[in-house]
Design a protein around this nucleic acid. Structure first.
Lengths: 199, 199
DNA sequence: ACTGACACGTGAACC
DNA sequence: TGGTTCACGTGTCAG
């Protein structure tokens, strides 16, 4: 686009503070003319790319482009906040059972007081059947986690009996092997100890 | 701020395309001078608020303000994408256990074949002690969910016995009331049926 | 005819 | 001192 007829491009007669005074029709070109042109173009391009990022555009004006960008950024920030809050809540709710609780600490003391010791017993009943007996500290959702862990290891429990007493939990159950090979009692005992320790 | 010394504010001698020609020193004020001033001020204010929204500011320039806003919006968009993906993944992973599985469908058929019916029995043992007996379809993590639900309702179970047989799960347990008032057997039975139905 | 938006060239100011 | 940014007033054009 060509710009013609601007008074600024014309020659000047008087100038309050400048040094250059022209009385003729000679065109004066400012030193930073092209630089200023570049600067304007840069800003315009940036505004264009900004507009391309914002999905909701009410107007094509420079001011409205920036305004829409502002509301969009605010919306994005709120979305990020809501999402991270939800994520944090889900994570904390899935981790809250791992937090030690007061009654769990009391459970350990009470067990000690009554002379109950943590114990894992595994007895072979027949070739692929074991009777297990576990005494451990009472702990929130320990039973559920234990059952889940056993299931994930491919064990099937039957006749499971759970009793909680004086801060201790007694689990006795019958373990049916699902593997074809013979179950080793000692091996299972170590695995049970590991499971109990980990949950 | 006062503006002095601009060549544009001075009187003009010639004009290529305009109609107004001044030869004297009379100051000419364009009609849209204040309007243009307002427009410029509006854009500047918008850019200022935009800058206040963007946390990382490399420069105070107009162009850099917009540039930083662009990168910030891109970052926010990516963050939203990552967060929503994570949330979606967590939700789908927490919902996958609710999907019916083949062995659960088989469980229902096997129960029917063997004439086992789902049942909830609640018997009063003494004032605040109930004996419960539940027969239901075998279902993945039903037991764990049941125990969790009971705990969340404030019930304490003892001497819990779980047996799984022919696609059915038998849970028998002793329920100790933690509330001061007397536990109504019928009330507990309805609650248990609700719990079993919901999990 | 009038209002709003824009690009333009320019001087001042700031490293 | 150069290079760069900014605000300014103005002409032009579209709705």
């Amino acid at each position: 686009m060509e710009f013609v007829g601007s008074a600024s491009t014309q020659s000047c007669i008087t100038q309050k503070r400048g040094r250059r005074v022209y009385g003729d029709d000679r065109d004066f070109k400012s030193k930073n003319l092209t630089a200023e042109r570049r600067r304007r173009e840069k800003l315009s391009n940036r505004l264009l790319t900004l507009r391309s990022l914002v999905p909701i555009i009410t107007n094509m004006n420079k001011a409205t482009i920036v305004e829409d960008a502002i509301t969009y950024i605010e919306k994005l920030q709120m979305t990020v906040k809501v999402l991270s809050d939800q994520l944090l809540e889900m994570e904390s709710s899935s981790e809250e059972s791992e937090r030690p609780r007061n009654d769990e600490i009391n459970a350990a003391e009470e067990m000690k007081k009554h002379g109950i010791e943590e114990k894992v017993e595994v007895t072979n009943v027949d070739g692929c059947k074991l009777w297990i007996r576990i005494i451990s500290k009472k702990k929130r959702s320990r039973i559920t986690k234990f059952l889940e862990a056993m299931a994930s290891h491919g064990f099937e429990l039957s006749d499971t009996n759970v009793t909680t007493f004086k801060g201790a939990t007694l689990i006795s159950s019958c373990l049916n092997g699902v593997y074809s090979y013979k179950i080793e009692a000692e091996q299972v005992k170590e695995l049970l100890q590991e499971i109990i320790k980990s949950i």
